[in-house]
């Protein structure tokens, strides 16, 4: 893959989350999360927050709440538990 064009850190964080809306991306993400994240020019903190996942860090870094919530559900959590689970996460979230 050629180097992604320059953009804000917020953009790439949200780009990664947005792309998970694509079924092919979800499959690749499920098969090898690290390899999938390699596609995006994420700094270490953003990458760690996506890998953990760290819900609070994602939000603090400007991830759009709608995308964070979709990632939360994709991670298998019940929708009504976001505040409880996100509130309990560690230093990555």
């Amino acid at each position: 893959m050629t180097a992604p064009p320059p953009a804000s850190a917020r953009y790439w964080l949200n780009r990664a989350l947005f792309d998970l809306g694509d079924p092919a991306c979800r499959r690749e993400f499920g098969a090898d999360r690290a390899a999938w994240l390699d596609r995006y020019p994420l700094d270490a903190g953003a990458r760690a927050a996506l890998e953990a996942p760290g819900w609070r860090v994602l939000l603090d870094r400007g991830a759009l709440p709608n995308l964070v919530f979709k990632y939360f559900m994709l991670s298998g959590h019940p929708p009504g538990k976001f505040a409880a689970i996100a509130g309990e996460t560690d230093e990555h979230g």
Partner: peptide, 9 residues
Amino acid sequence: HSVGTLDQG
């Protein structure tokens, strides 16, 4: 309402 933030609910 709030979605995907710590005050959801």
